[in-house]
Simulated scan of single mutants.
Amino acid sequence: MMDIQVESSTSRMQRQEQISSYVLQQSSVSVKALADLFNVSAMTIHRDLDELEAQGILRKVRGGATAQPSSLFESDARYRLTLAVKEKEAIAQHALAHIEPGQAVMLDDSTTVLALVRLLPQVTPLTVITYGLAAIRELTQVRGIHLMSAGGEYLPKYDAFVGLLCEQALAALRANVLFMSVAAVSGNYIFQPEEEFVKLKRIMLASAEKRVLLIDHTKLEKVALHRLAALQEFDHIITDAGIDEQKLKALKESHIPIEVAPLA
């Protein structure tokens, strides 16, 4: 009789975790490379990638998988943390000048805003309102920070909360200043792939007196599925010095004050 080996769910889960980590690290990888790396069949890798795509960790492409975003897919938070790091840090340092001690500051879940979160201890006392769990982790032990979390359904891919409870909590609050980033900017509009975060960010725009858009140059002249808002809904836009003259000129057509953060 043929000896049939049944793969345990534990080994499959372990392999999928290793696959997700590898794809997030490499950005893109082929099915063949994954099959060789893990010593399994291409069919097994295809099944693994199907499950990981269903979880929103990566997306399948012809012959492989990628962690890179598309107009319909926002990257896993772990991957986004590796992108445009110097640009995000420069933007965050520049944005700090828009915060005064004693203010209520509202923050989204973006990795660009997370760079600003790490600088907030410099301007305490503050009240900080956010639905991003990464920001909450950063601020829980900071003296002078009154932290208000908008909870709800937790989504591991984004390391953030969403849903009706989160929306209601944000709508019930009022902030002096909002800092937000998005997946893409094109023309006079900002775009986001996921409907859940479009709802949250629109509520935040309506809940703040001053609105600041933080956007690194790699997100300009791109689009995503949902048109979130017009640039004119913001009071300031901060980008980085990596922006080229043509894109900067297009951004200035919004007639919103544009600040360009220098890169070290």
Rank of each mutant, 00 (worst) to 15 (best):
L96M: 02
E138C: 06
N188V: 01
L139D: 08
A134K: 10
D76R: 05
A97H: 10
L155N: 07
L133I: 03
D109A: 13
K199W: 15
A206P: 08
L147D: 15
I215N: 13
S181Y: 00
A97F: 06
R78T: 05
K199H: 15
R143E: 13
G152Y: 10
Y79C: 02
P121F: 01
T130M: 01
Q103V: 00
E195H: 12
D108R: 06
L81Q: 15
A97L: 07
Q122S: 08
L120Y: 05
T127Y: 15
D76K: 07
I91W: 09
V185S: 05
G144Q: 06
L133S: 05
N176T: 07
G132R: 01
I215P: 06
T124C: 08
K86C: 05
A184K: 10
Y158M: 10
G132M: 00
A175R: 08
V182P: 03
A208I: 00
R118H: 14
A172C: 06
D108W: 00
E196L: 02
R78E: 12
P193C: 09
V128G: 13
P101E: 12
E138F: 04
L83M: 08
G132E: 01
Y154V: 03
K86S: 14
M204I: 00
V128F: 05
G102E: 10
L120Q: 08
Q122V: 01
D76L: 02
T130Y: 14
V198R: 03
Y154W: 07
T127A: 05
L205N: 11
R118A: 12
Y79K: 01
L155K: 07
V123W: 03
